[in-house]
């Protein structure tokens, strides 16, 4: 199903204030950053905190901020009319189209129910960035998946698809391109 209407409504909210150099979309402040910055931050946080704690921090904030900001547009903002008319699968697809606008990569649904789901990406942003920088910066193979941000974004999307409060789903990445898998695979389950 095409979600051109929600993408158009989302892009219509894109604004830039040249006097402050402030960029907004969907009523929230956003900023461009590149793979170099985000993968360095990821690596420094994991190296200093340890993999598990670093992953939890990044997933947690991605989930909280995504939930707040998706809800601002899709529930309380200009996307509400379109979003509320969709079934849960349509809502997930619509949010994945918004993730593409934000350049997070493309995500597809393998399975989905209120209890959870499985999702797949061949272009998840952080994996794409990590693979690009690994050889340039001589980084070693990763010990675990890299797409902590995407886990948080998907967890937030699940909450909104099923009209549940923040934190109702947990998402883990069961395979990742940065550790040699063909796709990044994300498993969601009710928390």
């Amino acid at each position: 199903m095409s979600h051109d209407n929600i993408v158009k409504a989302y892009l219509d909210t894109l604004g830039f204030d040249p006097n402050k150099s402030v960029l907004t979309i969907g009523g929230s402040n956003v900023a461009f950053h590149c793979d170099k910055f985000n993968t360095r931050i990821l690596k420094n946080i994991e190296d200093v905190m340890g993999y598990e704690e670093g992953s939890a921090l990044l997933k947690g904030w991605a989930m909280k901020t995504s939930f707040r900001e998706l809800r601002k547009f899709l529930v309380d903002g200009p996307g509400a009319g379109i979003f509320s008319a969709l079934d849960p699968r349509g809502r997930m697809e619509a949010q994945f189209e918004m993730f593409k606008v934000l350049a997070y990569g493309a995500v597809e649904i393998d399975s989905l129910s209120e209890l959870g789901g499985t999702f797949r990406s061949r272009t998840s942003y952080l994996a794409e960035g990590w693979l690009e920088n690994k050889s340039a910066w001589g980084w070693e193979l990763r010990r675990g998946p890299a797409c902590h941000d995407m886990c948080g974004h998907i967890a937030a999307a699940m909450c909104l698809a099923y009209g549940k409060p923040e934190g109702s789903y947990k998402v883990s990445e069961s395979s990742c391109r940065t550790v040699g898998s063909e796709d990044c695979v994300f498993e969601a389950e009710g928390a």
């Binding site: 956003v30 900023a31 990044l58 904030w61 991605a62 995504s66 350049a103």
Partner: peptide, 17 residues
């Protein structure tokens, strides 16, 4: 490779770290 990140996310992950 660019992404459009939430400013709140960028800031809060650093402060929490």
């Amino acid at each position: 490779i660019l992404a459009i990140n939430s400013v709140d996310y960028l800031v809060e992950r650093e402060l929490d770290f």
